[in-house]
């Protein structure tokens, strides 16, 4: 039963619209703009100038901070979900997806009304005689935006792994005299590591590449690598440099995925 023609439309589509575009980016990153086929490494050399290295470094730092924050906030959520009654689990999971029906940019923008100088938080602080604090346009606001948008990506994979965990393992640990803390540290947590690694990747990647969150909540003062790429393409029209930055960004992601050793969590279909 050879029915591989089923695949052709899909494979052709995906190669044309995902692989070919990436090859084009690579092509622009190594050629002189308007210079035909003359090769150059100048675009990559520019990436290593201190000015741009500091932008890349800042992006990685902020993404790491958000990833750690998502882990600290998300792990307990995943545990609570995995241990709640089966009937509730589905509805609780849905509650994490529902916010996405309100567009990402709209939700991020709404944080402005909450955090502005005359926004909601400062209105409450004003009632108790504090403030107004300037909450926006700093690193904290950008990290908050990242954590807010990406924490579900930490919760889902950890939840999926924890739910499949055999409860008798924990019972065994406790029968053998481990207290809850010890059985968590020695049994539950190590077994949930594939989910944690997958969650870390799923949060780190969009955080390190964002440009909209830093644009809105950082007020344009917080240039991250994503903002730099956007500027090259839409403002200065330096496609070569923008493409080199994009390739570097993809390499950062490949390295971080390599570090996470890409366990087969994706194969298990994550949430589904």
């Amino acid at each position: 039963m050879k029915r591989n023609w089923l695949l052709y439309p899909y494979v052709v589509w995906m190669i044309l619209f995902t692989v070919v575009p990436i090859l084009l980016v690579f092509y622009y990153s190594v050629t002189v703009q308007g210079g035909g086929f003359s090769l150059t490494m100048a675009h990559y050399a520019r990436v290593f100038e201190p000015l741009y290295m500091s932008v890349i470094w800042r992006s990685i730092q902020l993404a790491l901070v958000s990833t750690i924050a998502c882990f600290i906030l998300g792990y307990p959520v995943a545990m609570i979900l995995a241990n709640s009654p089966d009937k509730q689990q589905f509805s609780l999971i849905v509650l994490f997806v529902v916010p996405m029906w309100m567009n990402f940019l709209a939700r991020t923008y709404a944080w402005l009304s909450i955090m502005e100088n005359n926004g909601i938080i400062n209105a409450f602080l004003g009632l108790i005689g504090v403030g107004p604090l300037s909450l926006l346009y700093n690193a904290g606001a950008v990290v908050l935006g990242m954590v807010y948008n990406y924490v579900p990506f930490m919760v889902f994979p950890i939840y999926t792994v924890l739910r499949k965990l055999d409860p008798s393992l924990i019972e065994a640990a406790e029968d053998l005299g481990a207290n809850p803390v010890r059985s968590f540290l020695k049994v539950t947590f190590p077994l949930s590591l594939p989910g944690v690694l997958s969650g870390v990747t799923m949060v780190f990647m969009p955080s390190v590449t964002t440009f909209a969150i830093s644009q809105l909540l950082g007020g344009g003062q917080f240039t991250l690598i994503g903002n730099l790429i956007e500027q090259q393409y839409l403002r200065t029209y330096d496609w070569g440099f923008g493409s080199a930055l994009s390739i570097i960004l993809m390499i950062i992601i490949l390295i971080s995925m390599g570090l996470m050793s890409r366990s087969n969590v994706y194969e298990e279909g994550g949430l589904i």
């Binding site: 494979v11 995906m14 190669i15 619209f17 995902t18 692989v19 070919v20 575009p21 990436i22 084009l24 980016v25 622009y28 990647m205 969009p206 390190v208 590449t209 964002t210 440009f211 994503g226 790429i229 956007e230 393409y233 496609w239 923008g242 493409s243 994009s246 960004l249 993809m250 992601i253 995925m257 994706y266």
Partner: peptide
């Protein structure tokens, strides 16, 4: 692998690379 590519590829790279295409 080509199925996971758009899931793992950053939005901004999907966006600019398709724009170029």
């Amino acid at each position: 692998n080509i199925t996971y590519l758009p899931i793992l590829n950053p939005d901004i790279v999907i966006g600019i690379s398709m724009m170029i295409l």
